[in-house]
Design a protein around this nucleic acid. Sequence first.
DNA 1: ACACACTGTCATGCA
DNA 2: TTTGCATGACAGTGT
Length: 738
Amino acid sequence: MQYLKKYFTEGLIQMAILLSLSGMRVDVGLETYLPPSWHEMILGPSSALTQTQFHNLRNRLEDGNGVHLKNVDLDRFFTTQRLLGWVHSLDRLQVPHAELETWLVHREQDPLPVGFPDQTSAIERASPGMERGQVAPSVESRPSLDTPQEEEEDDQEVPFHSHCVAEHIAYYHQYHQNRLPNLNCPAKTERIFKDCLEKTWTSLLSSHLLSPFSFPLCFQTSFSLQECLRLLEETFPFAEEQQSVAGENIIPTRDSSWDLELHWQDLLAIMEPQVPPDHTDLLAENPSRDFYLELNAEDNSNTLNINLLTEDLIDPMEGSPCPYPENLPSFDAILCLHDSTTSSFTPFPEQYVMNQDPLASPSDVFLFDEDAEEEDGLPSTINDLIENVTILDEIRSLNLSLEEGFSPEMVARLDEEDSDSGLSLDFSHSHASPCASEASSYSSSSSSCVSAEESPFSEDVDEDGVEPLVGQDLEMDVTIKQEEDEEEELGAVGGRYPEDFKQIFPCNYGDDTLFNGFPWLEHIGHDHTYNQRWSSSSSPSLGKMPTKPPKSFLRQDNAKPYHHSSSRHISDATMWSRDERRARALKVPFSNELIVNLPVEEFNDLLASVPLSEEQLSLVRDIRRRGKNKIAAQNCRKRKMDVLFGLSDDVSSLMRYRSRLLREKREALRNLQEMKRKLTMLYQDVFSRLRDEEGRPLNPMEYLLHFEANGSVTVASCKQGAALPLTKSSKKQRDKKK
DNA sequence: ACACACTGTCATGCA
DNA sequence: TTTGCATGACAGTGT
């Protein structure tokens, strides 16, 4: 009794905690379908299941104190730590079967009436290892688990949705802990679904499918938890001997559940026409699914862990609103990776999983690659995992430090990794960096300053920030004949540039091809496309990696008035660059951007269109030259860094190749020694059987064996050189002796 | 004060 | 010859 109670409460609490820690929203949702008294009874006022969203405390330490300022952007870091913790706890976390299974719905006796043959059969295959006979509560808990998410994302399309309903139905027969990821069901279908569920629930109650030991009935009859547990213990002794009930089927006969069957059919009929056939085919043909189910049949808790582990890894990458059928094979593949070395089906290679590690610095990934190739170029799952565990341990050590309250060493270490490193990694979002606050005010410079909130590839900020920046300050009365209309739109000396104007100057300084061979370079924070106000906005392909802002942001962009329309009123002398000050002093009627970025012909036309003094012309040309050179220097430095990283990668590859060659050399030498040894033994064996004319054994030191091309073997004396042909009879004799 | 990183600028060479 | 670009070298600036 105490055993059951203990595991029931603690198991559910653990479930809730683990779900929350894995990033899921812990929302049992029983209140949707259960009376409040039931809900209160199940969860209790102090239960951990009372929708406590532990993940809201992700960025807080357990003592409630906020984490270090540097870590407010370490969301992924924390998530990774949790996931890593899951990995490490796979061997010890044991959520008792009994408590979990009581939330399941099992009607494996009645196959689903519609086209999920594989699922049904799979369920039946999966069932033997599971506790059977527990019914119903998950009928309510399952959809309610997904209800919040569904309500939040009701804008999905209906086909999706019915598909999700199908998923619900299909996986009622599986594991309630297999929380469906990204189920996005619109409210309408959800309502229909709920109605069906309510009917089903009513049918369950009326048809006594819910035996007295089932929890909902207990709650319905207002039994206390102790009473429910007692009944459970009396009627279902799985707690003492789980395996004793493996084959039992406590579900009543088909006839008694006929009413329920009708409801099921109603429910399935709703979604049947819209079930994507591909998914069922996929499920039916997916070889890993069987393995998955068998594995689940063997160890549900492990499945739960891995499922929780993989969910956060898969979903963001999938990006599809309801990718469950696709996710499932992926999930299976990961299961295969974790639980066996079978590599027959690996849609998600382990590297993919590991690369999700937001802490995986390029070096980490690199090490991983290196180790992957270390084993003769063959992907070795075990070795990869072992190597990953090493990385995981390192990260876990960080985790321990974090849990202990962020020691100063850790802070210093993070600071070093964050801001002092020359290579700003993508996860090092420094809180102190002005990116978030100043990104909107920067023009193109913000290309290398992406805050944690925005996408690394987003360019909205740039687009918004560029246009009003181009020299609105210079209020020069300039009339340009040929481009009068355009200049009006451009604002002449710094008006707005039309969009096609940007196309005129593609300014594709970012050489994307340089990244082709080094995808991890894209995460290197060195963005050498600084201060290209137009180019970065017009070339979104540039590496807009989250990194700390170049120092010139503060220095130069603060010194430039582009982001302040009223900057002319703010200490012009200090806010303007040297050329701009000169240009302003000489009343050059063009903005520096215009001077620098105009093509040669247009630039010449521009100069020809406006009468300028020699001094002004010289200054304009200098400005153009310096501006061009500045951009060239930036690109040059970028290329240099790319070459540097490429060389580093080459060095690493060559080192891997060298180590592999050395290993092969050792192996070859070992084989050679073995062959020599065998040859010596064979020689001795042959000579031990040979006799000379006088019947004396031949000395191997005095004779040699000669193998002729025709297959005959002769014995030659080392001294005399005379060959003693071995006759066929002698060979036959030797054969007989053998 | 010093080292270092970043950036702009100049000089030079090449196409 | 002119122009644009690439790059080494140097200097200024900030951390």
